[in-house]
């Protein structure tokens, strides 16, 4: 696929005014995501992952640089871009069905079509029997499924997910990762997923974007390059994981100023594929 990037982030800098000072959350970040690609973003907390995602989704529009989606500048939220938050943020006063239907509030579709779409997406995330349940009656995993369904119900062509499985137990998390991957394969949606779990990043991503903090920068982009379905324990996947971990560790360790600048300037492509793994 070489139609040009689906999501194009060019030299984006985002600063926040904090206590009279200015905090650079993102510093000159550039990232291209191809159509139908699954990109995962990892990095220590506070390195600007959520900020980058909110900018891409159009939830935040005060930045320097350029962000385009399918060639159009992103200047606000759009129903073509779905968003899934870490806490599912379901409205506790609405049933699951009504929560998902919220996504279609501004779709302009006739009632019957909305109803069909909600049913279809309940089924997609395996919540058909819970249409009339209230959020408090659902487990964490089920609630997040509903959150994903709400993000997808508009049939966006890109879905942004901010640590969607971060609060789930290991078993539920594994299951939801597989389900998300199936949805991605079936619906052919571009996905950008933020996580602090390196295993999750390499298991799901076509490419893994590694960010470093203070100021938030993209340190390296690691292509996973393994066919799906992937085996979590396969040697090849473990190798990529170690590679990502290694890079990540370098971002969090206090490196001398000079060395840090050198790493930042070196082209990711020139770096050794595997750093120090036996």
């Amino acid at each position: 696929m070489s139609k040009g990037p689906h999501i194009q982030i060019r030299n984006v800098t985002r600063q926040f005014q904090v206590n009279g000072g200015s905090l650079t959350a993102l510093d000159d970040v550039s990232l291209d995501v191809a159509e139908g690609e699954f990109v995962t973003i990892v990095g220590a907390s506070g390195c600007g992952k959520s900020t980058l995602l909110r900018l891409g989704a159009g939830l935040d529009t005060t930045y320097k640089g350029a962000i385009n989606h399918a060639g159009e500048p992103v200047d606000g939220p759009s129903l073509d871009r779905g968003m899934v938050f870490q806490e599912p943020r379901l409205f506790p006063w609405l049933t699951i069905e009504r929560n998902i239907a919220l996504g279609l509030e501004n779709s302009g579709l006739p009632k019957g079509e909305k109803k069909a779409l909600v049913e279809q997406h309940l089924e997609l995330v395996g919540l058909t029997g819970f249409a009339k349940a209230y959020p408090h009656q659902l487990s964490g995993g089920m609630a997040q499924r509903a959150g994903i369904a709400r993000g997808l119900v508009n049939r966006p062509n890109v879905l942004f997910l901010d640590e969607p499985f971060g609060a789930l137990d290991a078993i539920t998390k594994t299951r939801l990762q597989d389900e998300l991957q199936e949805i991605w394969a079936k619906e052919r949606i571009t996905m950008v997923l933020v996580t602090h779990d390196v295993d999750e990043a390499v298991y799901l991503g076509d490419r893994v974007v590694i960010m470093s903090p203070r100021p938030g920068r993209i340190r390296e982009i690691v292509p996973v390059g393994l066919p799906r379905p992937r085996v979590r324990t396969s040697a090849a996947l473990v190798q990529v994981r170690n590679r990502v971990l290694d890079s990540l560790n370098n971002t969090t360790q206090p490196v001398p100023q000079q060395a840090a600048r050198n790493i930042g300037e070196s082209s990711p492509a020139l770096r050794p594929v595997i750093a120090a793994v036996g």
Binding site: A57, L59, P77, R89, F91, G103, E105
Partner: peptide, 10 residues
């Protein structure tokens, strides 16, 4: 957080 959901859904 709820208001942000509304924002995302325009």
């Amino acid at each position: 957080r709820y208001l942000e959901v509304g924002h995302a859904l325009r």
